[in-house]
């Protein structure tokens, strides 16, 4: 059975590209546009990995990870955060919240696939 990855980003184009890349690599993809949306969509289904942007409206990536860690069903889901070089402080905050994996924007779709396959076995 193929694994399910959720991409949480407020940029539709990033979601689309990541989604195309992941589907191409054999994953199922769920898209969410911010932390709130992500929380709503992660419940009730098996999500194996979450890719989340940091800077998002409504609920940012850090709060999103904190929330995920509070829920027994979702606390073990690995999270890849999308970040940029200029966000060192955010990165530490994210690590404190429990997100250990990071992909630096701008990234190539292949880098994303590599990051995902480090974390979950397809």
């Amino acid at each position: 059975m193929s694994k399910t990855v959720m991409i949480v980003d407020d940029s539709a184009s990033i979601r689309q590209v990541v989604s195309i890349a992941l589907k191409g690599a054999g994953y199922q993809v769920i898209e969410a546009c911010d932390g709130q949306d992500g929380l709503a969509k992660v419940s009730g289904q098996r999500v194996h990995l979450i890719i989340s942007d940091v800077n998002m409206p409504k609920m940012d990536g850090i709060s999103f990870v904190k929330e995920l860690k509070k829920i027994p069903e979702t606390k073990f889901i690995p999270v890849i955060m999308l970040t940029t070089e200029s966000m060192q402080a955010k990165k530490q905050e994210g690590q404190a919240a429990g997100a250990r994996a990071w992909v630096v924007k701008p990234f190539q779709p292949e880098q994303m696939i590599a990051a995902v396959s480090k974390l979950i076995m397809s």
């Binding site: 407020d10 940029s11 184009s13 990033i14 590209v17 942007d53 800077n55 409206p57 999308l82 940029t84 924007k105 701008p106 990234f107 190539q108 779709p109």
Partner: peptide, 21 residues
């Protein structure tokens, strides 16, 4: 402002528009 610039940069990189990035 920051978020807008940030998102444009991030997405542009995805498509390989390095000059925009």
């Amino acid at each position: 402002l920051f978020r807008a610039a940030h998102t444009i940069k991030g997405s542009a990189g995805l498509f390989g528009f390095d000059h925009i990035v």
